[in-house]
Structure formats: structure tokens, C-alpha cells
């Protein structure tokens, strides 16, 4: 909550797209590698406080897009604003406000987990203490371990803790659940949902529709460097034509009304069929 006070109120926010409360605006973003067009002129907004999912197959351009927003890669064309700041001209100022988990994170072999968290914290004007971060990700007993001695899931959690070390208002997570067992995956989902409760904006990439559906408020589907669809999970299911007719019997005393069903976002149409049986 304290985060909200750090936002530069009204700092040259791009108003295109009509979204007054966008924390990220991307316009006409293009990036090529030789003949490959990794990102092909995409535009989108990310709203403050939402979880935004980038969904797409291998090589779709998810990582490229994310890393341009993070200031690690430089776009060939287009305009990117992060928290009102032009990512090319105010890279460091923008980077001080964001948290980043890369698709693969390797850390210094000779530093312990706690030392790593403290070191990365020192790069920012304000940092959360390593011990409270370790408590957050339930990794206290590994404080003195080296990163390479952690299990895959523990390493993912450490990478997430590193993304939170500066208490950022905007967090980028590149495939945060890849390589996790189902239980760890669920736990990480909870952690990500808690980030939103704490007022943070989360941008994540994933290969899985179910993950995007469970976590994201809005999803952009990326394919071959283009956004082929962009909507809420329910809206996407609608536009993608995944319609189903569900018939059921409403027990007497059960209070679901047809009007209530109509009010649900995912329900296109609800009808009552007369007759007792």
C-alpha cells in the first residue's frame, strides 16, 4: 500500500488508447533479429493493479517483448512507457520501479542466497530486507545455501524474491511456473495473486491457457510476433468460439436464479425451461 505513494502522479502518462490508468503503454513495438521478426508492431496497455498475461507458443516473442519493457533489449521501433517513463530515455529510473524475473536466472556461484538478496537490494534506493523476503518465499532454511545447490522450484522462488527486492509496483515474470510440480505451481499462483492484493501490477508469460485463465485479469495472445487476441479470459473464450450449452436441474431451495446466471461474464445466454422434470 505504501507503494501507491511512490507513483509519480500524472507523470507524462500516455493517454492513447483511452486508458487513463495504464502503468504500461506499448505502441507499434517492433524487434527483428536478422530476418526473424520477433515482435511485429504490437500495441497494448497494462492497467494499474491487474495481472496481465502474455500467452503464446515457443518463439512467439513473449520474452523479447517483456525484455524490451524491462529495458534489457532495445526495440527497433515503437514507443514503450513504463510508469509514465520512456524506457529508452529513462531506463534506470524505470528500472528502479520494476521487478524482473527472467525466463532463466543464474546467480553468482560464490554468494549465498541471503548475500545475493542483500546485494541486489543495494542496487535500489529502497530495498526489502533479505530475511523478510526469505520468509515470503518460505526459503529461510536455505539462507546460507548457494543458488546452484537449490532445487529447481526453490531457485524459481529465489528468482521471484529477487524480483520483489525493491518492493516494485510493477513485476515482470517470464514463465514463472515452468518446471514446477503441480503443487509448487499452485503455491506460486497464490503468491502471484497475493501480489495483486498488495496493489502490485503483474505481467507474466505462460504457455498454458489454464494458467492465464486462473491468474490473469486480461490476456494477450501472441503468435509469431503479433497479438492475435486480447481480452479478459472470459471474453477470450467467447471470441474464440468455445461455446458450450450446459443443462442442469435447479433443486428447489437452491438460490441460483436465471438472472444471476446471466450476470456472469462467461455466460452468454441463460434460459429457463419449464416443466417439473
Amino acid at each position: 500500500m505504501a507503494l501507491a505513494s511512490r507513483q509519480p502522479v500524472g507523470a507524462e502518462t500516455l493517454s492513447a488508447g483511452g486508458q487513463g490508468d495504464s502503468i504500461v503503454t506499448v505502441r507499434d513495438l517492433t524487434k527483428r533479429y536478422g530476418r526473424t521478426i520477433a515482435v511485429d508492431g504490437i500495441s497494448f496497455d497494462i492497467h494499474r493493479g491487474e495481472i496481465f498475461g502474455l500467452l503464446g507458443p515457443n518463439g512467439a516473442g513473449k520474452t523479447t517483448t517483456l525484455e524490451i519493457l524491462e529495458g534489457i533489449r532495445v526495440a527497433d521501433k515503437g514507443d514503450v512507457r513504463v510508469d509514465g517513463l520512456d524506457i529508452r530515455r529513462n531506463r534506470r529510473a524505470a528500472q528502479a520501479r520494476i521487478g524482473v524475473q527472467l525466463q532463466a536466472t543464474t546467480l553468482f556461484e560464490e554468494l549465498t542466497v541471503r548475500e545475493t538478496l542483500a546485494l541486489f537490494g543495494s542496487f535500489y534506493p529502497r530495498a526489502i530486507s533479505p530475511d523478510s523476503l526469505l520468509a515470503d518465499i518460505a526459503l529461510e532454511e536455505k539462507a546460507r545455501a548457494r543458488p546452484q545447490d537449490l532445487s529447481g522450484g526453490q531457485r524459481q522462488r529465489l528468482a521471484l524474491a529477487l524480483a520483489l527486492v525493491n518492493d516494485p509496483s510493477l513485476v515482470f515474470l517470464d514463465e514463472p511456473t515452468t518446471g514446477l510440480d503441480p503443487q509448487s505451481r499452485r503455491m506460486l499462483w497464490d503468491t502471484i495473486l497475493r501480489l495483486r492484493e498488495r496493489g502490485k501490477t503483474v505481467v507474466l508469460t505462460t504457455h498454458f491457457m489454464d494458467e492465464a485463465q486462473s491468474l490473469a485479469d486480461r490476456i494477450a495472445i501472441l503468435d509469431a510476433g503479433r497479438i492475435i487476441a486480447q481480452d479478459t479470459p472470459a471474453g477470450l473464450i467467447g471470441t474464440l468460439g468455445a461455446k458450450a450449452t450446459i443443462e442442469g436441474v435447479v433443486e428447489p431451495g437452491n438460490v441460483v436464479s436465471v438472472d444471476e446466471l446471466r450476470g456472469l461474464a462467461a455466460v452468454a445466454e441463460a434460459r429457463e425451461r419449464g416443466g417439473g422434470c
Binding site: 524491462e70 529495458g71 534489457i72 534506470r92 529510473a93 528500472q95 528502479a96 524482473v100 527472467l102 532463466a104 536466472t105 543464474t106 546467480l107 553468482f108 541486489f120 542496487f123 535500489y124 529477487l162
Partner: peptide, 14 residues
């Protein structure tokens, strides 16, 4: 090669 520099490049460290 290990990507440590890339991770640091995502922070404001010069």
C-alpha cells in the same frame, strides 16, 4: 554466458 550480467542489466546498477 550464464546470464548474470543480463539479470544485473535489469536493475539500475551502472
Amino acid at each position: 554466458k550464464q546470464g548474470i550480467l543480463r539479470r544485473i542489466a535489469a536493475t539500475p546498477l551502472r
